[in-house]
Design a protein around this nucleic acid. Structure first.
Length: 288
DNA sequence: CACTTGACCTGTCCGC
DNA sequence: TGCGGACAGGTCAAGT
């Protein structure tokens, strides 16, 4: 679920809340959350001050004054939720969260800060991870060495995108979009939405997609990612922002999770199938 | 090498 | 009501 727009939304929220705070206590379920940790992570984090919060692809980085960074992947069900020492989220409260009292049974890591606030890393399915890595060494980790360009960057022209996609010319266009070494940050939601926008059938092989349609896909992908960031991301089940609130993009979705409903463009009933091992939503007429 | 499938997990939903 | 199984989706390892 957390794809580029969701991780970007969390990054912006934490970027407003965390910098300047010092970590005063840590609880965690090492080694599940901190695989292959070389240090006593909790001890190592104490008295570190948060310097900045950044994002690359679907990965969040909390940069610390110790010259180390917490590198975090939320995978499918991960959440990072900040709560001040006084927040109470009873029903009807204007700041009511999607989730209840924290920590709960999905909480895997808790950071407490010197202002009394807590940051909870919740992750029902335990696919997510955190790593404590020297900030200077982050570009060297395997994932970042292989990951493709940021689709919202100025350098990401349609020609650049075409070149990236052609590295997987014999696979279908949806699998190529989902491949993080081709383009960074695209997941199932925005693959389906952008392919619908460009009127491309997801099973089409990359080498068979004409340049004109790659241009359409480039615009559709950037538009849908930007729209979703503007709406605070997509919430299917688990995703919430740094304050525990769900995203609003899915009310604007054209095909994702809309099987059985009419295509907003032509009225044909949207179908669900399986492409690249994922649930895939298409208009059978627009994307024939 | 290029590409596809299965494993990792847990909660939810559907059919019997 | 209970129970088994499919499904959800990001990434890496293993398989074809």
């Amino acid at each position: 679920m957390p794809e580029l727009p969701e991780v970007e939304t969390v990054k912006r929220g934490l970027g407003r809340l965390l910098p300047g705070l010092t970590i005063s206590a840590v609880t965690h379920d090492n080694p599940k959350s901190f695989p292959n940790a070389e240090h006593d992570v909790a001890q190592f984090l104490l008295q570190s001050k948060v310097v900045d919060v950044t994002r690359r692809a679907k990965v969040l980085m909390i940069e610390l004054s110790s010259k180390y960074s917490l590198v975090i992947h939320l995978k499918m069900t991960g959440q990072l939720v900040y709560r001040s020492d006084t927040e109470k989220f009873g029903a009807g409260h204007p700041n009511a969260s999607l989730i209840g009292a924290l920590p709960d049974k999905s909480t895997r890591v808790t950071l407490m800060f010197d202002n009394g606030a807590h940051l909870y890393f919740n992750d029902q399915r335990k696919f997510g991870w955190m790593r404590l890595i020297p900030t200077a060494e982050i570009p060297q980790i395997d994932f970042f060495k292989r990951v493709g360009p940021e689709p919202l960057s100025d350098e990401f022209t349609w020609q650049v995108m075409h070149g990236c996609l052609l590295r997987r010319k014999n696979t279908n266009i949806k699998a190529a979009l989902l491949d993080q070494s081709v383009i960074a940050g695209v997941g199932n939601i925005y693959a389906d939405e952008s392919l619908w926008g460009a009127k491309i059938n997801p099973t089409m092989l990359v080498k068979d997609v004409p340049g004109k349609q790659i241009q359409s896909l480039h615009k559709a992908l950037r538009d849908v990612l930007q729209l979703s960031i503007d709406k605070g991301g997509s919430t299917v089940q688990h995703y919430v922002d740094a304050e525990g609130k769900p995203g609003k993009y899915l009310t604007f979705a054209n095909v994702f999770r809309r099987e059985g409903q009419p295509c907003p463009r032509c009225g044909t009933i949207i179908e669900k199938s399986r492409v690249a091992g994922r649930g895939t939503h298409t208009c059978p007429v627009c994307q024939s």
